[in-house]
Design a protein around this nucleic acid. Structure first.
Lengths: 346, 346
DNA sequence: CTGAAAGCGCTTACAG
DNA sequence: CTGAAAGCGCTTACAG
């Protein structure tokens, strides 16, 4: 912080303090503070006088002073522990981030954005977090074995993950859409539309979305008495290119496939391209089902039939869970239902 | 902040304070503080002792306490004053945001993300900003007449805009890529490749990118002695759909066009779709030039020849300018060069 | 170069 | 229900 050294504000333009409010309302600072805290143990008359003074003077609490005495930061971190490239193409990220900002804003809690995709960044971030510069953390990461989880636990800092953290033991809060059921819904839809050979392109298997959507696919096939066929399964990494490559592989290994469930819309876009190059039509020859209902779903031709993830609700629940933990509640898992969105690709 | 009330930390797990460091190093608190501020007026022996104690104890400054006495927040806001939808599809946004976070991180300055796309949000945000809860603002908005600019000026808060704010008078800091020259470069490239009838699809004309890229297009045509032809100009809003519609309009109004300069890659993707539906080939029949070099540029077929915007440098310069202003420097304008990236579409 | 001390703006037991 | 007062952890003139 040597970087923000000089020039304290001139006396004249200093915002009003609690003392100004107290004088104006004819009460003590303690009473003003009590009104600020919710007005318990304050007479209606005093409360009204204080509120009037606050409005009159345009008083806004000085968070640094409050923070110093309460030993709480009064703000929350949005901690991005993915490398940047993973996010660049991901429109869900923006939705999640602005959703969390808005949900926190309603509680008047500022959000601090922190990136920790590299080891160097993590070294810088850890002391900041463990010295309680934030009251809690919204943790964004999808891959197995995120070292930040241990750091946060050691610092005894409340946190809630976006999506189920893989390979963690012990209680831990996360909010996730129902990947498993979402996948089942899509595969059921494809089968009930009369498709016989349903393939899939998965996400990375060290992510919950990769793993659980594949399990949902397998489970629904089994329920329909269809044996699992490895030739019908390709693995992607959520990029468009990997969807393209995966589809190419599937078309070679199983030329008789008539449907494909792709674990993300972006990969589905790639799959569409591969299908088109192969001279096949969607949905006539091959039905394509995506996952996410991200903006690409409606940008491609034909528009994707897909599974909608409730990102706004996810952000809201993450914030709610985090605040509950900050207030002393224990961790909890929240699973939110997804929704089938039928368009033209299947 | 009634929301983060209870449970102050137990005495035992409190982080070490400057007093602990002072005792450990055998000096006064004042001396520790001076070392923290850069070590001026401190003997080498004392400095070493303090630094050793800091390392030993894992001391990290309490920012709330510092902030209270220095009257500075020690953090900076990233203020998003666009409605959400504008951002959802925009991959540049993520680059800019993480770029700013990283650049600030190198100065140990946290970034607070604030959204103010609606009037209701602005009402909540303004008191927060004008009571100096941040030392400065990175202002993201592209449309003419952003009310936040007036609020920031009234609050006397340093700020730097991303892109040139249209219709503002008076000195004001902004960082922008050279839209005008970028457009000129693309149009020159198309003309020098032998194209004769170069059309354009613009961005919204109340944004600097919409306006200046169109001016660059007109200017370069004029330099080649080509008269401006309204039938060769369509207006979009940076969405993929508007690029598609714009291209359709151009193909009707000027069926003889053999190139099109599209003011964003996303719109260029839409244009590609319209061209394909018309049964024409890219680049054989029509050369397509984009703008941004965003991830879509390489995701589409054929990959786009485009103008690269230096988003990482833009974020770095925004941060640098903002810190300079916080330190008392006056406003400045920074224009960064763009780069022609030749791929297959032109 | 260094220490002692005031003070930043709040909250919160403690008395009453 | 209310006021007086201690104290949160720092920085910064002020003396020396």
């Amino acid at each position: 912080m040597t970087d923000t050294a000089p020039r304290r504000r001139a006396r004249g333009q200093r915002p009003p303090t609690i003392i100004d409010v107290a004088e104006h309302a004819g009460v003590s600072r303690g009473t003003v503070s009590r009104v600020l805290q919710g007005g318990h143990n304050v007479s209606p008359a005093a409360r009204d006088a204080v509120n009037a003074a606050i409005r009159k003077l345009g008083y806004v609490v000085n968070r640094a002073a409050r923070s110093l005495v309460t030993q709480r930061a009064g703000c929350v971190a949005f901690l991005l522990s993915e490398t940047q490239d993973r996010l660049f193409g991901d429109p869900n990220f923006t939705t999640l981030l602005t959703g969390c900002t808005t949900a926190l804003g309603e509680h008047d809690i500022p959000l601090i954005l922190i990136t920790a995709g590299t080891e160097a960044e993590r070294r810088r971030v850890t002391p900041f977090l463990s010295t309680h510069h934030v009251d809690g953390v919204l943790l964004i990461s999808s891959h197995r074995g995120n070292p930040m989880i241990d750091h946060l636990r050691q610092a005894n800092l409340p946190f809630v993950c976006c999506g189920k953290p893989l390979g963690e033991r012990g209680a831990l809060s996360y909010v996730s859409s129902d990947d498993h059921e979402g996948a089942r819904t899509m595969v059921r839809y494809l089968l009930e539309s009369g498709r016989k050979r349903v393939a899939t392109i998965t996400g990375p298997l060290d992510t919950p979305g990769g793993l659980e959507r594949l399990q949902g696919y397998r489970g629904m096939l089994a329920e329909h008495g269809i044996a699992y066929d490895e030739r019908l399964v390709a693995h992607g990494d959520y990029t468009r290119a990997s969807g393209d490559a995966g589809m190419q592989q599937l078309l070679t290994a199983a030329p008789d496939l008539d449907a494909v469930f792709v674990a993300s819309d972006l990969m589905a876009d790639g799959a569409l391209a591969a299908i088109e190059r192969a001279g096949l039509r969607v949905p006539d020859d091959i039905a394509v089902g995506g996952f996410d209902d991200s903006p690409v779903a409606t940008a491609v031709h034909p528009p994707l039939t897909t599974i909608r993830q409730p990102w706004t609700r996810i952000s809201e629940m993450m914030v709610r869970q985090l605040l509950a933990q900050i207030h002393g509640e224990g961790p909890a898992t929240v699973i939110l239902p997804t929704e089938l969105v039928v368009r033209e690709s299947a």
